[in-house]
Design a protein around this nucleic acid. Sequence first.
RNA 1: GGGCGGUUAGCUCAGUCGGUCAGAGCACCUCGCUUACACCGAGGGGGUCACAGGUUCGAGUCCUGUACCGCCCACCA
Length: 917
Amino acid sequence: MSNEQAGGLPKAYDASSVEGGIYARWLAADVFAPDGAGSRADPAKPPFVIIQPPPNITGALHLGHAQRTAVEDAMTRHARMTGRPTLYLPGKDHASIAAQFVLDRMLAEEGETRESLGRERYLERMRAFVESTRHVMTDQLQRVGASLDWGRERYTMDDGSALAVRTAFKRLYDDGLAYRTEALVNWCPGCRTSISDLETIATPETGTLWQIRYHLVDAAGAVEPDAWISVATTRPETILGDTAVAVHPEDVRYRALVGRRVRVPFVERDVPVIADDVVERDFGTGAVKITPAHDLDDFETGRRHELPAITVLDDEARVTEAGGPYRGLDRYAARARILADLEARGDLEGSRAHEMVIGRCQRSDDVVEPRLKTQWFVRVGPLAAKSLASVREGRVEILPKRFEKVFFHWLENIRDWNVSRQLWWGHRIPAWYCTDGHVVVSDRLGGPETCDACGRPGTELVQDPDIFDTWFSSGLWPFSTLGWPEPTDDLARYYPGTVMETAYEILFFWVARMMMLGEWLMGQPPFATIWLGGIVRDPYGVKMSKTKGNVEDPLATIADIGADALRFALVHGLAPGADARIGRTKLDGARNFSNKLWNAARFVLGARPDDVPQGAPLALPAAADLGPAERWILGRCGATIEAVSRAHDAYQLGEVTRLLYEAVWSEFCDWYLELAKAGLADPATTPARRAGTWQTLVWVLERYVRLLHPVMPFITESIWGELPHEPSDPELLIVADWPTAERELGLADADTSAAVEALLDLVRAVRNARAEAGIDAGASLEADVVLPDARLREVVGSMSASFERLARLRPVRLHADAASLPSSAGSGLAVVTAAGEARLARGAGDIERERARLERELASVREALRATDARLADVAFTSRAPAHVVDAARRRRAELVEQDERLAARLASAKAAGDEG
RNA sequence: GGGCGGUUAGCUCAGUCGGUCAGAGCACCUCGCUUACACCGAGGGGGUCACAGGUUCGAGUCCUGUACCGCCCACCA
């Protein structure tokens, strides 16, 4: 029975040589799809559909993806084992602006630009680029072990998505929720496209507030050199687009000027002084220049007063023709020149530093320019209302719950969604314009046949050059991937989804949009639970990023310690919504745990008694063949099954790994394995009991392997391959049943468990006393053990081989009470626990040290006793606290009293012995 | 300017319904190469649960306030 041959398990688990093969076996067995050939799903059970954010098609796996995948895959595998048809659908996102950003950089190295290639050639390049990268993420997700249903893989630029986008947009248009208008949008001059509010990052900056004179114009239209109104601005270059100066209607300083005209410098345009209560009298000079085409506030003020909006900055933020003498200058160059010119005219009154918040492009970091553009918008009010109601009324649950508030706040204050992008890579907006100015929105592939309004043939219509915001197509993901708008079986079966798992970073970008679009187009929210994860940080709490160089490469980590250890580390201690710090220490811990599990399996397989035939099916031992230790570990195993199942049902994966780490390491390995070793080695053990012990080892290990599979799929599948099974078990663990606990719990009983716990407690106490007394750890001592409880005495008696081995005592003589101890037992070490006491014989010992130890223990017991007594003496406590709490306190007191007596007696004899010596 | 989260052992963090809740891992100290594992085993030290009030028989746990850290949202030039 050598462990080298341990049932085929090699001495060390070699992840790199095993994982690929296991993944290939899963693929070959077709077990990932809910309807795959190898699926053992029960079609009658409710499907479990998990929705994952499709990664960018040009991307490579980073630790954040790995964590998302670890979480999603664990949920998926757990659901699959419970027999539910389980859909975990893979996909890629075309990521229009992000992909263009990457490709543009590559083109720049070749000396090319978007414009130099032109739209068609640029898109060809993009398609080729995307083809070259799309396999990367797929391969890496498989390395992590993601049990994605690859047969259903989708892409946000495939034909199905394209149809879904056209259909969705037409529906919104027909419902009056998509409209085209000229409005101020966030314009990124670097990316040369509009971006959404979400992509505009408010950045605090110290700017300058300049004070500038606008001279009044007299009735004859002449400038009055000595009469002016001073305005305050942080953007002098927008002077060129001013169409009014506003003051507060009740501001006495300016009341007389309202209705007069002032001359805008340089462009020499006369504009009115208007009164509007948006103006803060206390800010700056109390007078504001109004530039409707370049400031959101001003745009609205302009509307109220019917002011013209003059665009003075172009797509690249250079001054337009309307900017007169400054035309062609970059916005900042124009600012400098204008300030210098104002100074020269004597119209620059002063300036001061000003703390302000400026919008920057999330992608390029350019300062975003509000610009007047004709674009498509989605009216989100009615959509948001539905989403808010779904969450408020509990149809959709957000985990953790605190994000519900964030979600509410955002949706309550949301502005219409600008969906047009002046980019090329993405879905073209399905809107066509005819020369008569009619607009046709069509979901027909290739565009409308005729203009709806005038019947002009489609060939004479011109399609909108813009594309959709990437998130418009991602927002359709939960149903576009199931075949929508076609009424497919998948759509009927797998919509709405069960859980949507993602990082809280994209709650608004993606989750909220899926909610809004899903509810409107499908009539119900796209998922029941929103599970939000956090950000993966380095050990110092810094968000990992390539530029900071603090990234942990998940693939290198997998090569190093295996995918399972990485997954375990990413999930262990994870709470929804909380950021996770991942570093060497945590990864090492996970690797050590994998190693522990592997070696426990090697031991168990190698410990098969000779009279148990190899290849015998797995069976729970008969009750008669179980010792107390077996009953105890089966009870613990049952409790763990139940606790882990509950944790999974609540999506608490951090709790799942915590429970299993504890169960496998601290209970199974540290205690039961050691107890079993002694039982197996004891010649007094009957063959039936020996078989029962081994079967218990295998059984419990087998349950833990099942429970760990969702988090650690490879190593558990590996071990499973070597373990005996019940006849009803499948060949692959991935489709094995999730365990239930009734059989284990049926073999356990509370009394035996309590007795075994008491035994373990005694072992701990003996080890402690031995260590403190400095006794050689290898030395075996004679012991007299007093256990007043008969049941406990019986259990310890039946486990004497284990007890002797674990506590290093031999022989152990059991006694019902201290009075029956032989007098020779008076010397040596005394060990007192709640259940009883042990007296260990030993040679020469340090009496003083022993006395000090006993005094310390006695003092601590008396302290606890005092506290318990005080509690029980308080009538308020005994009358108001629930009975079970009071009972527990009374039991505790009784134990403490006994310990007190035993310790006092031992201390007395130790003192006597010391005095004699 | 609003809102949210955090503050528990040297470090990273669990702690559900208020009652064995003062916990884990790492680090540290002392032993130990006991035939699964040194990626290990045994034992140990270490915390006024940020601070101040309050509710309660009883408070890391609930309430109020304060401090510090972090995050999200925000169209006052």
